[in-house]
C-alpha cells in the first residue's frame, strides 16, 4: 500500500513540475519587466520563480495591487463551493436513479431514466444556464438569478467560501446572509448538477450491472439471500469504487462547466475573475489560475485515490496507477 502511495506521489511530482514550467512560461510572457535578473539564464530565472512561488509570493494584480495568490484562492473557493453543492444535490438524485436503472435493465424504468440522462448529456451547459436565468420569471418562482449574494450584505472575505463567511458574520446579519447565499446558489448548482446527474446515472447503472453479473452475487443468490439483501449488503459497496474512479477523471470537466455557469450567473468565482482579468489586461491571472486549479485537481486526485484504497480492498493490492 505504501508502495502504491509512493508511486502516486511520484506521478504527482512529475505533473506538478510540468505545470510549474508552463506557469513560469506564462508569467514570463505576461510580465517581462517584473522578473528580476532578466539577463540571467532561463534555468536560474525558473529557480527564482519557483522559490518565490513556494514562499507564497505570487505577484500583485495589476488592477488593484492585491496579492494574486489571495485573489486566486478566494475566487477558486467560490467555484469549489458551487461544485460542492451541485455534487451533493446530484448524488442525492442520481445514485438512487442509477441503482434502479442498473437493477432493472431494459425495463421501462431503465429506459425512462436513461432518457433523462441522455437529455442532460445533449444539452450544452451555457445554453441551459442562460435558460435557467429566465426560468424563475416564467414560472413565477422568486429565486435570484444574478450575483453570488445580495449586495445588501457586505460579507468580509475570510475563507473564500462564502457560505462559511456568512456564518462567521452571523452577528451582523444573523442567518439572513447565509440563506441569501444559499438561495443564490440554487439555480447555478441545479444547472451544474444536471450534468453531474447524467454522469453519475450512467456510471452507477453500468457499475451496478457489472456487479450484478459477477460471481459473488450469483453465490449470494445460491445462498438464498433475497434480492434486496443482496443489493444492500454486497452490491452497493462493490459498485462504488468504479464510480468514484470515473468521476475523478471528470473533475476538470466539472470545474470548467462550473466556471461557465459562474459567468452566466455573475457569481464571483474563478470564471468571472479570469474573464475580467483578461479583459482588463491583468495577464498574471493566467499562471495563477493554472497553478491553483491544476494543483487542486492533482491533490484531489490523490485524495480520491487514498479514499478508494480505504473503501475498496482490491485497490490496495494494485501496484500501478491507472
Amino acid at each position: 500500500m505504501l508502495n502504491y502511495l509512493f508511486r502516486r506521489l511520484n506521478l504527482l511530482f512529475i505533473t506538478a513540475f510540468i505545470l510549474s514550467v508552463i506557469a513560469f512560461i506564462l508569467t514570463y510572457w505576461s510580465s517581462k519587466n517584473t522578473l528580476a535578473d532578466a539577463d540571467a539564464g532561463y534555468i536560474i530565472q525558473y529557480v527564482k520563480y519557483m522559490s518565490a512561488i513556494l514562499q507564497g509570493e505570487w505577484g500583485l494584480s495589476s488592477i488593484d495591487q492585491q496579492p494574486m495568490l489571495i485573489k486566486g484562492l478566494t475566487a477558486f473557493a467560490s467555484t469549489l463551493e458551487l461544485c460542492f453543492i451541485a455534487f451533493i444535490t446530484a448524488n442525492i438524485i442520481a445514485i438512487p436513479l442509477g441503482i434502479f436503472a442498473g437493477l432493472n435493465r431494459n425495463s421501462l424504468l431503465d429506459y425512462l431514466i436513461m432518457t433523462i440522462a441522455l437529455i442532460g448529456l445533449a444539452l450544452p451547459v451555457f445554453w441551459l444556464a442562460v435558460i435557467t436565468t429566465m426560468l424563475p420569471r416564467l414560472l413565477g418562482i422568486p429565486l435570484p438569478i444574478d450575483g453570488g449574494i445580495s449586495p445588501v450584505f457586505e460579507i468580509p472575505v475570510v475563507s473564500g467560501f462564502i457560505l462559511l463567511d456568512t456564518l462567521l458574520a452571523a452577528d451582523t446579519y444573523q442567518l439572513d446572509a447565509f440563506f441569501n447565499r444559499l438561495a443564490h446558489l440554487i439555480l447555478p448548482s441545479s444547472v451544474l448538477s444536471l450534468f453531474l446527474i447524467t454522469e453519475i446515472i450512467r456510471l452507477t447503472r453500468h457499475s451496478i450491472t457489472m456487479v450484478m453479473k459477477s460471481n459473488y452475487v450469483k453465490a449470494a443468490y445460491a445462498k438464498g439471500l433475497s434480492r434486496k439483501e443482496i443489493v444492500f449488503r454486497h452490491v452497493l459497496k462493490n459498485a462504488l469504487p468504479p464510480i468514484i474512479h470515473q468521476l475523478r477523471l471528470q473533475l476538470s470537466t466539472i470545474i470548467s462547466f462550473a466556471m461557465v455557469i459562474e459567468i452566466v450567473f455573475s457569481l464571483q468565482g474563478s470564471g468571472v475573475w479570469l474573464l475580467s482579468s483578461i479583459k482588463e489586461g491583468d495577464y498574471l491571472a493566467l499562471p495563477t489560475a493554472i497553478l491553483i486549479i491544476s494543483g487542486f485537481i492533482l491533490l484531489s486526485s490523490i485524495f480520491i485515490d487514498i479514499l478508494l484504497m480505504i473503501i475498496s480492498p482490491i485497490k490496495r493490492k494494485s501496484l500501478y496507477v491507472d
Binding site: 435570484p144 441569501n180 444559499l182
Partner: peptide, 24 residues
C-alpha cells in the same frame, strides 16, 4: 425516500430567503 427528504429541506431553506425588495 432520502431524496425527497433532502429536497424538502432545500425547499424549506429557500423559504427563509428574503427577497431584497422587502427590505425597507
Amino acid at each position: 425516500m432520502r431524496f425527497l427528504f433532502a429536497f424538502t429541506i432545500t425547499l424549506l431553506l429557500s423559504g427563509c430567503y428574503k427577497n431584497e425588495s422587502t427590505l425597507t
